[in-house]
Amino acid sequence: MVVKPEWLRVKAPQWERVGSVKDILRDLGLNTVCEEASCPNIGECFNNGTATFLIMGPACTRACPYCDIDFEKKPQPLDSAEPERLAEAVRRMQLNHVVVTSVNRDDLPDGGATQFDRCIHAIRAASPGTTIEVLIPDLCGNWDALATILKAAPEVLNHNIETISRLYRHVRPQGSYARSLELLQRTRDLAPWVYTKTGVMVGLSETDEEIKQVMRDLRAVDCDILTIGQYLQPSQKHLGVVDFVRPEQFDAWRAYGESLGFLQVVASPLTRSSYHAEQVRSLMERHPRERGNQLEAVKRQESEVSY
């Protein structure tokens, strides 16, 4: 049995507040990635009244060997009422910032982009002051689907690259390192006002130079925000942890990322893609971007950008 080092210990949450959030989720029939993916920060985030909502789930069409989301269940048809229930949860929780993610839905022609669009619009209507971050899959490289999501004008588009190029076939066999980079590049080209974000997990044999290369690749596509956290094995059937990275190494990667020009680098053993995501609001105040008429801009650039 692998013993976690002291720096990976998580403080016990105040379960009264956690229970309140769970009650809202159960009442509205919603899923969170916090629960489905066994996130170690669930107590802290629920205690703070935040959650990363998981739409179109919880059954995933991919079987990534590091992820605890169920891929054995059969994906269900989209729920037309889900966007409104999600918006109601955001309203009840009085969220300033919300993160909406999904399982991979490779069974859908647009990978679920239309459902993301509906959710964004529903949240805007119910909570106009809430900033919206979407954490999306790679959509199998369907760039029309990406444009559908961007037309709804989320403030942040997050897509996790997850690991280094060398490990992609081992860690993300149905994904593509190049495709994930291209998604972030196309987002920048189509919607320059959107803050782009991605995440990397470590502890699967990466070298310091390989992590730095990922960071350079991400800056080459003008990615704004990067999260780096320790991979933890959800169960014995998942990929094993090769090494536990010490906190000082995360500090070094943060400093290197900032030197490359990332607007924000969040790096620590317990960092996850949506951990303290609400801090992006202060980042947006420090680095404001003019959004203008988002829909018309996307339509115009769709016709101009070709690859």
Rank of each mutant, 00 (worst) to 15 (best):
P269D: 04
F244V: 07
G129V: 04
E88N: 07
V98S: 01
D110I: 10
S38E: 15
T52F: 00
V242W: 07
L218V: 12
A63D: 09
R26K: 10
P109G: 13
L239M: 06
W193G: 09
Q294Y: 12
V265H: 03
A297T: 14
G29P: 03
R179V: 10
E290G: 14
W7Q: 02
Q14A: 15
I123T: 02
E258L: 12
L86E: 05
P13V: 10
V134E: 02
V171W: 00
S80L: 14
Q264H: 15
Q174D: 09
G129E: 15
W253D: 00
E206T: 01
Q185S: 11
E82F: 05
D189W: 13
S303A: 14
E209D: 15
I24K: 02
R26C: 00
D251W: 10
P288Y: 13
R300F: 10
A63M: 00
Y177L: 08
P137F: 05
P77R: 11
H287F: 12
G292P: 07
S127Q: 09
H238A: 04
S268F: 01
L157Y: 04
R62C: 01
H97G: 05
T187C: 11
I132S: 00
W253S: 02
L78P: 11
Q14C: 14
G261T: 12
E258Y: 07
E133A: 06
A152E: 04
K197D: 01
E88V: 06
W15A: 14
E16G: 15
E72N: 09
R186H: 04
E88W: 06
N160L: 08
T198F: 02
G229A: 09
R286Y: 09
L295E: 12
L295M: 09
C140Q: 11
C64W: 01
F46H: 07
I228C: 01
L8N: 06
K237M: 05
A122C: 08
E182G: 08
V242I: 12
L108Y: 11
F244P: 02
E285P: 06
Q94G: 12
L8M: 12
D251Y: 09
Y231P: 00
C223E: 06
A125Q: 13
P173N: 00
H276N: 11
N293G: 03
K22G: 05
W253L: 01
A81H: 14
C60E: 05
G292V: 08
H276G: 03
H276K: 09
A122G: 06
R291K: 13
H159C: 06
N96G: 15
T163S: 05
S180L: 13
V245A: 05
R169N: 13
P137S: 07
G292F: 08
S259E: 15
V202F: 03
T131A: 09
S80Q: 12
R124W: 04
T61E: 05
T50K: 02
I228V: 07
L157K: 02
L157Q: 03
V265C: 06
K151E: 11
A89I: 00
V171C: 02
L8S: 08
Q249P: 04
G57C: 09
D189V: 13
I24V: 12
R17F: 10
W193V: 10
T32Q: 01
P128I: 06
V98G: 03
Y307N: 11
D208V: 11
D23E: 11
F250N: 00
Q249H: 15
G49Q: 05
S259K: 15
S268D: 05
L25M: 06
V21F: 02
L283Y: 07
L239D: 00
A255Q: 15
S282K: 13
D222C: 12
A125H: 15
K74F: 09
T148D: 11
G57A: 08
